[in-house]
Lab assay of single mutants.
Amino acid sequence: MQIFVKTLTGKTITLEVEPSDTIENVKAKIQDKEGIPPDQQRLIFAGKQLEDGRTLSDYNIQKESTLHLVLR
């Protein structure tokens, strides 16, 4: 499924993921596309910060959901 990741600069990254993918996994995909190390990434969905060990389905993230990427 496709999800979108919006950065603070207003750029939107499109990722191909599975509901069973972990947040860690998603961060690795963002690193592949954008070169941002996962340890600098914070992903936010519905106002919650997403934890590395959880999966997209844990957070009920469905196709075409938009996550927000904050760098630390």
Rank of each mutant, 00 (worst) to 15 (best):
E64V: 06
I44S: 14
G47I: 02
I61A: 02
D39N: 14
G53K: 08
F45E: 02
A46R: 07
A28N: 07
L71P: 11
A46Q: 12
I23C: 02
V26R: 00
T7W: 12
K33M: 09
P38V: 15
E18V: 11
P19D: 12
D39R: 14
V5Y: 03
E34N: 04
E64A: 08
K11A: 06
G35V: 03
L67Q: 01
Q41E: 02
S20E: 09
G35K: 09
G53W: 13
G35N: 12
K33R: 13
P37D: 10
K29D: 15
T9S: 10
E16A: 14
Q31S: 08
E24Q: 13
D52S: 07
K27P: 00
T7E: 08
E16Y: 15
K29I: 09
E64S: 15
T55N: 13
G47K: 04
T7C: 02
R54K: 06
I36K: 03
I30M: 06
G53L: 06
L8G: 10
G47W: 15
E24W: 10
I30S: 01
L8H: 13
I36R: 03
G47A: 06
E64K: 05
E64Q: 05
L43S: 00
Q40H: 07
S65T: 10
K48N: 13
R72T: 15
V5H: 00
I61S: 01
H68A: 04
T7H: 09
P37K: 15
L15G: 00
G53F: 14
S20Q: 15
I36A: 07
E34P: 02
K33N: 08
R54W: 13
V26S: 01
Q2Y: 12
R72G: 13
E34G: 05
I61R: 00
A46D: 13
T66S: 10
L8W: 08
L8K: 10
E16K: 15
R54G: 13
E16V: 07
I30A: 02
A46N: 11
E64H: 15
V26C: 02
P37L: 09
D32L: 12
G10Y: 06
V17I: 05
A28P: 01
G53C: 03
L8V: 10
F4R: 06
E24I: 11
T7Q: 08
Y59Q: 05
K33G: 06
E18C: 02
E16P: 08
T55Y: 13
P38Y: 15
H68W: 06
F45P: 00
Q40V: 12
D32V: 11
Q2S: 13
S65K: 06
T9A: 07
I36Y: 10
D52T: 05
L8R: 07
G10F: 04
T66A: 07
E51P: 04
N25S: 12
T14E: 08
V17A: 12
P37I: 07
P37G: 09
D58L: 04
D39E: 15
L15W: 01
V26F: 02
D58I: 06
D21M: 08
A28S: 10
T55Q: 15
I23D: 00
N25I: 15
P19V: 14
I44R: 07
T12H: 15
I44A: 08
P37N: 09
R54D: 09
L43F: 06
K33Q: 12
L71Q: 12
Q41D: 01
A28F: 10
H68T: 08
L71W: 04
Q31I: 03
E24F: 15
Q40D: 12
L69D: 01
K27F: 03
K29T: 05
L15H: 01
L50K: 00
T22H: 15
I30E: 00
E51Q: 07
V5S: 01
E16H: 15
T9G: 10
Y59G: 01
A46M: 05
G47E: 13
Y59F: 07
L67C: 01
E16T: 14
I61K: 01
A46T: 05
M1Y: 14
T66Q: 05
G10Q: 15
V17L: 12
G53Y: 13
D39C: 03
Q49L: 04
E51T: 07
I36E: 03
T22C: 02
N25M: 13
D52N: 09
D58W: 04
Q31G: 10
T12P: 06
S57R: 08
E34K: 05
P19L: 13
S65I: 09
L69A: 03
V5I: 08
L43K: 00
K27W: 03
E16L: 07
T9Q: 15
L71I: 06
I36P: 12
Q2W: 08
L71C: 03
D21S: 12
K33A: 10
K29N: 10
E64T: 13
L69E: 01
L71K: 12
L56Q: 00
L8A: 14
K6H: 09
L56W: 01
E51G: 05
T14R: 09
R72Y: 08
K11W: 12
I44M: 06
S65H: 09
E24Y: 15
L69P: 00
D21K: 03
Y59N: 03
G47M: 07
K6F: 08
H68N: 07
P19M: 11
L43I: 11
E64C: 02
